[in-house]
Design a protein around this nucleic acid. Structure first.
Lengths: 195, 195
DNA sequence: ATTATAATTTAGACTAATCTAAAATAATCA
DNA sequence: TGATTATTTTAGATTAGTCTAAATTATAAT
């Protein structure tokens, strides 16, 4: 990623990002060469993985145990993920039953930092007549998640492609004995396991 | 509390505490007059109560749900308590079954900020032959909690006073069919409900 | 291959939170 | 009650994280 992209993502200026890169470099979490970009070191990768682990485990907890609505989960998890205690996270993991995926279908690194892989394809590639199990989403913007909620689409649902429009890629799928229209854009953001 | 005492507690210098008092005063959380001390405003009291609520609910969660050992609970709870979301805390409260007391026996304010009161006395005041139920401790220093752990003393245990030494106030109590020696100091830090 | 444009970094300023040392105020005691 | 001591506050320095504007470097276009 470029300095500007990071800045846009963090809602900071590129100048601030440059400072951060220098600091991360001093801590040996990244290898950084001015104007050339940066790359995580092994140590940095471990830090990042632990952060991902914390974030996704908290998401599972907030959503599954506390029943906190979608809209609020992301924001709270971003605060919780900064609490630094391996003990806490390992106990949380155990409490939750060592989940392998978070409520968006994203894989959760285990205590050793290993991700569970699984075969996945896009709903947009599911041929007419075929069945698929929804296992995740690619985009976690609120507007998209709400769009899915409205249509009743969620992780764990089984869908069948009825029709795939060759012109605009929009799809008609069946789910829960109902037919649903889906834009090509949306279908390309939904991960499925074909059945 | 004095400026110096606050400083000692926070492990900061008195100069820093003065700065904090001025800032809290600017936010109208305390009424502060230089050299005269400070007092919480109504708004400040509400903030403080919410902080206590957060802290104690997290403690219940860490201890009861996650089985995190004593020694670690306090430190983690101090980080968690700074996450500011009423939604989160109210859901956590509900998840935990709206507990009224934390694992040390300290009362937890409800969503309206009300504490549950209960009659309590000190173990040191329990006359020989009388029974009491341990419901809390007054001091939460690690060393004291470990001292209690070693003797098997904890919240929910029923004890009977056998003997009370008039000279050094030390006590012999019976618990779980065993006799236990307790210093006068310790007995004065244990809350009981007499039975 | 030069030049123009875009991306990135540097320099310097600002704020917030802390500190030390000095000054001001309050409390204590002879 | 006046002097001494303790407490508290102020003043000024330091560090970390951010910003804007200017300078530098890389990329793209003619």
């Amino acid at each position: 990623m470029t300095t500007n992209e990071i800045a846009a993502l963090l809602l900071n200026t590129p100048a601030s990002v440059t400072d951060m890169l220098k600091k991360l470099s001093a801590k040996e979490l990244i290898n950084y060469q001015p104007y050339k970009g940066a790359r995580l070191t092994e140590q940095g990768y471990k830090h990042a993985t632990f952060l991902v682990r914390k974030h996704r485990l908290w998401k599972v907890f907030l959503y599954q145990s506390l029943n906190i609505p979608w809209e609020a989960v992301q924001e709270i998890a971003e605060e919780l993920e900064h609490i630094n205690s391996e003990l806490l996270i390992d106990h949380l993991d155990s409490f939750l039953g060592f989940p392998k995926f978070d409520p968006h279908g994203d894989p959760i690194p285990n205590a050793q930092g290993k991700y569970t892989l699984r075969a996945q394809s896009l709903l947009s590639d599911l041929s007419p007549g075929k069945q698929g199990l929804i296992i995740g989403v690619k985009d976690q913007q609120l507007s998209f998640l709400q769009y899915l909620d409205e249509k009743g689409i969620g992780i764990g649902k089984t869908v069948t492609t009825i029709k795939h429009d060759p012109y605009d890629q929009s799809m008609i799928i069946s789910m829960d004995q109902k037919e649903i229209n889906l834009s090509g854009k949306a279908a390309g953001l939904i991960f499925i396991k074909s059945l």
